[in-house]
């Protein structure tokens, strides 16, 4: 059930093909970093994986999907909407219930944004917004996390804390990243995409600098 498999899939949107004939298998408990240049197809791949098992997957889109005019609390509570009655949801919109605050506060504390609980998302910095989206994903209490560059705006110290928290909360993680160092430092396995193909799929320990150079070109200014 927790195994996600793609076999010779061609992915794209409308008439544009992004990924051609790719195969990928993800085992329970794996922590995978997804690498590749912007526009290489990371998001397309994540969306496809998400559609395989929406029941058990928490998903963080690249644009985060936050409602700017609502507070951090409400944005996290959004993940609970379907498990509560409409009336209770309206009540929480007007005045958050103590019980719900108590559920959400510890997650925010782990991510070091507990002091922002009633601040509107529109007023947050990029890093704070990413952590709010992560908190929303965590509060769903699911086994698998698919996240699209969720930590790109965090500083080194916070990155460590957040990744720890994610690893602790989710069994299986596939995370699109920009930063090769972070991928190698924290994750088990790296999947690299280029020109519509998966050109790299190795355990982190076996990754060489040639592998990463091939993925981004040496002269690429992305790192």
């Amino acid at each position: 059930m927790t195994k996600l498999v793609l076999k010779n899939e061609t992915l794209g949107y409308e008439s544009v093909t992004v990924l051609k004939n790719i195969s990928l298998s993800i085992q329970k408990g794996e922590k995978i970093a997804l690498l590749g240049k912007s526009g290489s197809g990371k998001s397309t791949l994540l969306k496809k994986l998400h559609s395989l098992d929406t029941q058990n997957i928490s998903y963080i889109p690249q644009e985060l999907g936050l409602v700017d005019t609502l507070s951090v609390f409400h944005n996290v509570y959004i993940s609970q909407l379907d498990s509560n009655s409409t009336l209770y949801n309206i009540r929480n919109l007007i005045k958050p219930a103590k019980k719900e605050i108590q559920n959400i506060a510890p997650i925010l504390k782990e991510l070091h944004i507990d002091d922002l609980i009633f601040k509107k998302c529109g007023e947050l910095s990029g890093g704070q917004r990413q952590r709010t989206a992560i908190a929303r994903a965590i509060s769903q209490n699911k086994n698998i996390l698919l996240a699209d560059e969720p930590i790109s705006a965090l500083d080194e110290f916070i990155t460590g804390k957040v990744v720890d928290s994610l690893f602790h909360r989710f069994e299986t993680i596939v995370c699109a990243l920009h930063n090769v160092d972070i991928a190698l430092k924290y994750f088990d396995r790296v999947v690299g995409i280029k020109d519509g193909q998966i050109i790299l799929d190795k355990q982190c320990a076996k990754i060489t600098s040639d592998d990463t150079n091939q993925l981004y070109h040496v002269c690429d200014d992305q790192f």
């Binding site: 889109p61 644009e63 409602v67 700017d68 005019t69 609502l70 909407l81 949801n89």
Partner: peptide, 26 residues
């Protein structure tokens, strides 16, 4: 209507009140 479809909320009223309306309110 910028809320990602992948984060689909099933309750129509709740979805409207939490995602669409606050976005459009200002």
């Amino acid at each position: 209507d910028s809320f990602p479809k992948e984060l689909h909320v099933k309750g129509k009223i709740s979805a409207f009140l939490y995602t669409k309306l606050p976005d459009a309110m200002p």
